[in-house]
């Protein structure tokens, strides 16, 4: 385990050391002490390393991650795991806005709550939030799955494309073109696997969730739908 004290090592040097890693590297486990909400920690990683942020992270923690596992032991700021390509990001606290924004792949697990626009423009990532999420989440979500064990804020899935949303609690309101869909067996099965991957308590069953997705009525413009845009 390599320990880096961010009171003594700059974010640039820390990220630079992580960027130098590849799968052949001997030291793939890292722990960053005293993060103190610093921005851009562990961004752009592209190696199968394991990085633990021992406290709170600022904006864009684990942004554009590939392959790596990043664990934030506190809260994370705006854009956590934004545009992630692959890998695993686990935030033990809450996350701010735009968690998992535009991300193409990988798994983001949030033990606490996520603020507004969680999963905005997501393009294939799986996001599991064990608490609740804020408004405008999964806005223009293109692909991937957003799973919420708590409640969802207003305008959920506005202008959603092919992403799937699963909510266990209440939904304050759905955005344009987002509708509730039937939870078929294949969805429940896939959701069970995802909950397992996110280390969700076994007592929570897929049958407790509702599924949401696109009605696809706004995919091609028609004047009679103008009011929905």
């Amino acid at each position: 385990m390599n320990e880096v004290d961010l009171n003594e090592t700059s974010v640039r040097d820390f990220n630079g050391q992580l960027h130098a890693l590849d799968e052949q590297s001997n030291a793939l486990a890292w722990r960053a002490l005293n993060p103190a909400g610093r921005h851009c920690l562990a961004v752009g990683l592209d190696a199968p390393c394991e990085v633990t942020i021992a406290g709170h992270a600022g904006y864009y923690c684990a942004g554009m991650n590939s392959q790596a596992t990043v664990v934030v032991e506190g809260n994370a700021g705006v854009g956590c795991a934004e545009n992630m390509m692959s890998g695993h990001v686990h935030v033990k606290g809450d996350v701010s806005q735009s968690a998992g924004a535009t991300a193409h792949g990988g798994l983001l697990v949030v033990d606490g709550n996520a603020s507004a626009r969680c999963g905005i423009s997501m393009k294939g990532i799986d996001i599991v939030v064990k608490g609740s999420i804020g408004p405008m989440s999964a806005f223009m979500a293109q692909a991937g799955r957003l799973v919420v064990l708590g409640d969802a804020g207003d305008a959920l899935g506005d202008s959603i494309y092919e992403a799937q949303i699963f909510v266990r609690g209440d939904v304050k309101g759905l955005g344009a073109d987002c509708v509730e869909k039937v939870m078929r067996d294949e969805h429940a099965l896939a959701l069970r696997e995802l909950l397992k991957a996110a280390n969700v308590d076994d007592s929570i069953s897929p049958e407790e969730f509702r599924r949401f997705g696109s009605s696809r009525s706004l995919y091609n413009f028609h004047v009679d739908n103008a009011g929905a845009y």
């Binding site: 974010v11 990220n15 752009g44 942004g63």
Partner: peptide
């Protein structure tokens, strides 16, 4: 901060 992220990712 976004620009900082882009710079960090691209060295």
């Amino acid at each position: 901060i976004k620009i900082q992220e882009l710079r960090e990712i691209t060295g």
